[in-house]
Design a protein around this nucleic acid. Sequence first.
RNA 1: GGCCCGGUGGUCAAGCGGCUAAGACACCGCCCUUUCACGGCGGUAACACGGGUUCGAUUCCCGUCCGGGUCACCA
Length: 485
Amino acid sequence: MSKTVRTRFAPSPTGFMHVGNLRTALYEYLIAKSLGGTFVLRIEDTDQERKVEGAVDIIYNTLRRAGLIHDEGPDIGGNYGPYVQSERKDMYLPYAQELIKKDKAYYCFCTKERLDMLRENSDEPGAGYDRHCRDLPAETVEENLRNGVPYVIRQKMPLEGSTTFEDAVYGTITVENSELQDQILIKADGFPTYNFANVIDDHTMNITHVVRGSEYLSSTPKYNLLYEAFGWDIPVYVHLPLIMGKNDDGTISKLAKRHGATSFDDLVNNGFLPEAIINYIALLGWAPKDNREMFTLSELTECFSIDGISKSPSVFDYDKLEWFNGEYIKTMTVEKFAEVCEPYFKKALGDKQLDSIKLASILQQRTTKLTDIPEKIAFFAEQPDYDKELFVNKKSKTTLENVPSLLKAGIDALEALSSWDHDSIHDCLIGLAETLGVKNGTAMWPVRIAASGMTVTPGGAVEILDILGREEALKRLHKGLEKLS
RNA sequence: GGCCCGGUGGUCAAGCGGCUAAGACACCGCCCUUUCACGGCGGUAACACGGGUUCGAUUCCCGUCCGGGUCACCA
């Protein structure tokens, strides 16, 4: 009988969800779900100084909108609560004291000032703590404790030898123990450090797979030493390659604000669909066995496996995300698309009421970012002032000489129309081209320009006329004719 | 700087000793067409470098170079 797989997403409430974090959450979710396991949410708020109001809600909202539903967490409970570290505060000290008893940790009374001085006086970057309190006489420790001297608890690293661990994606990694700092376990405020709380929580919550960014690769030996000191089973480590951004000079570095939108909310506000974001980031650092690219979350759950995770960092490509977004937009029903377009329609049209289904249908094939919509349809609300040169188009064979009569003929034909709908308008204009003996484009171009005032529009003359409605459409056409005379 | 990790086209990436080195995005061209898109077809473009091992290295080993990460009472 093998243990149930349990993964956890353990963000700290910083106020926004970086895509790197989101991808970590996604992979944690996928590893758990693909193995029939449990996905846990734990909030890591041990840094009391960096608390951000409302930050936890952002985590809930993001996870929910992304579809990464957790099985246990602060909001829904579970058998391993509490799921907020600050509420677990009292659990950690006893574990640290146990370590002291085992001679794997020690009290340190060094002041922050002394530590700062140490750093300043050192010429080597990363010189670290000098282990000043590591071998304090027991009596001194007792006395300091009795007198209430502030202290931290530090991990006692072996001075010799090396520590080796297995990572599911990076393989065997060995680090010399001499490289390891005597890191702090319990801070002066009584809170555990991230590293310590992590180990205690992961163990007490029965986490089987520790999934996190590769920035933790080099500190993992410290974790292992802790597990060993307690005599606990070591979890499966799954370190993920980092997500990078491309700088203007061509170099890359950790994805940051200057590269563009970096949080889930930013991306959504920039017109990207949650499904597209998830699909895209799933493929940033993981590849399926086949060539498939389009995946819903449940399809990902079926196909995901740890051995498809790559080792090298990947650059976040907004172009590719846009492509995914366009693909998702195209697979929606028009009704659904019209629904997500609603706020953007409103922004462009204000109070003006137009058929949103018709608008949506001309936009669906040409939209990759929802935020592009307003400027594409603004001309429906208000026709821009345009130059009559727009009527001239070589490919459509329209010139300032033939356009007036072309447009006049179009107006006459359209005014004779008894019903104003897509098919009638279409047949009317196509018929006109035929009777005039010109190409469809030659008859359409002047009409579309006069109706829109733009050379490039979503949809053609027929669609625009239809959406505009008879009255407004004819009004614009006549105005166009005046402009030409 | 020490340590850890990585290095296939501009980007994401297959590949896991023998291939004309996939595919996708982006870019370019052609077709379709009522502008633009969509769609279809085609094209440019890659194994960082040097040594080994081997009959044979993109693939295994070593070195160099380059890139990233990490060295907090932050997570």
